[in-house]
């Protein structure tokens, strides 16, 4: 029933454009955060496995990396592998999180759901998940959900040990499975420095610009643009070796 309602919304939305600021808060109250999460999960649960092809771009301040052709393999419950077909790719820790179902790995009962309401200026519903288990590495997940499509557009996960991950998804053809066409995965990186005694660098005499902001910006980004998915066709366990 919820889905039916949601399908109706686009039509109404045109009419409501002018009064969105007034009604937005009201409309979101129509479903509970638990329902929203359940809908999102239901969509994601349709996927047992997939094999996806795409292009991966790595944007880390201290790495110059080429754009890589990758294959991404997933299998329930939480197996994920990013393979560079023709070269080497630095895969950030926590990349398993690009698979959104990972958020709900321990079931919805394992965390408290806090509804924050809609993000100002958008129709994205912000829902925070607080794991009940105190020993969980994840401290907090914040999801930005497109309620109408039951798709997570953005997710921020704060962990104890590995900093904060951020995911940003754009959906297209595979939206019905909750699979994005484009994922941007942001993560924290530590400082990189090797002693010159090991690297014996060639010092070309040029003064390196000492931009303090550049050095402090320790966020790395990996962007994967998928060209195709092959969903639920079975994936051999050997690829996750």
């Amino acid at each position: 029933m919820m889905e039916k309602m949601c399908r109706l919304i686009p039509g109404k939305a045109i009419l409501m454009l002018a009064i969105i600021p007034l009604f937005a808060g009201y409309r979101s109250m129509t479903s509970t955060p638990e329902e929203v999460i359940a809908n999102v999960r239901a969509k994601l649960d349709k996927v047992n496995d997939y094999e996806a092809s795409g292009k991966m771009k790595t944007n880390v301040i201290f790495i110059k990396a080429p754009i890589a052709k990758v294959k991404v393999y997933f299998k329930k419950p939480n197996k994920l592998r990013i393979n560079n077909e023709s070269g080497i790719s630095f895969i950030p820790k926590g990349s398993v999180n690009i698979n959104l179902s990972n958020i709900f790995l321990n079931g919805t009962a394992s965390f408290d759901i806090i509804d924050v309401g809609n993000e100002a200026g958008t129709n994205l519903r912000i829902i925070k998940l607080l794991p009940k288990d105190e020993n969980s590495d994840v401290v907090l997940s914040t999801l930005y959900i497109d309620e109408a499509q039951s798709l997570i557009k953005k997710a921020k996960t704060t962990t104890k040990d590995n900093g904060t991950y951020e995911l940003e998804m754009t959906y297209g053809k595979y939206a019905e499975y909750g699979l994005a066409d484009k994922v941007i995965f942001s993560f924290n990186t530590k400082d990189y420095k090797l002693p010159k005694g090991i690297t014996f660098d060639y010092d070309d005499g040029s003064k390196k610009e000492q931009d303090p902001n550049k050095l402090k910006n320790k966020k790395g980004k990996v962007e994967i643009v998928y060209s195709s998915y092959s969903v639920n066709k079975g994936v051999s366990d050997t690829v996750f070796r």
């Binding site: 790495i63 990396a65 070269g87 990189y192 090991i198």
Partner: peptide, 12 residues
């Protein structure tokens, strides 16, 4: 290629 302040990756 590892440099003291960064990593250079070159396609084969």
């Amino acid at each position: 290629v590892l440099r003291s302040e960064g990593i250079e990756q070159i396609q084969s």
